[in-house]
Amino acid sequence: MAKLMIVFRTAPYGSIYAFEGLENVLIMGAYDQDISVLFIDDGVLTIKKGMDNSGTGIKDFSPTFRALEAYDIEKIFIDRQSMEERGLTMEDFVIEPEVIESGQVEKMMEEQKNFFMF
């Protein structure tokens, strides 16, 4: 089983990256591998509650993150510093990721066979 990681590090809707990251998480979930998901930098905004993108014409994909458990993806992490710098707390998110410290991020990445940044 390969350790694979998807890293969300850009805000949603301003670019396609977060949407494509989610597409990859959902597809990877079907391959029975050791998948981790990390939200860091502006990527923490991807799972923020109360997003209203109705005026943009872009599909609202935030609710889909709630389905990750159904895809057997349980290792979901968020970087504490990125959260705090943006004034966010655990109540602000549509899912409940595990909070990790910045120092753990590097180690976690080193342990992966491959990871993709979005």
Binding site: E23, N24, I27, M28, Y31, Q33, K113, N114
Partner: peptide, 17 residues
């Protein structure tokens, strides 16, 4: 399909983007 990227991540020692 996008699944072929996952397969690549599983099989390759390094995926370089």
């Amino acid at each position: 399909g996008l699944g072929m990227l996952t397969e690549l991540a599983i099989e390759a020692d390094r995926v370089v983007e």
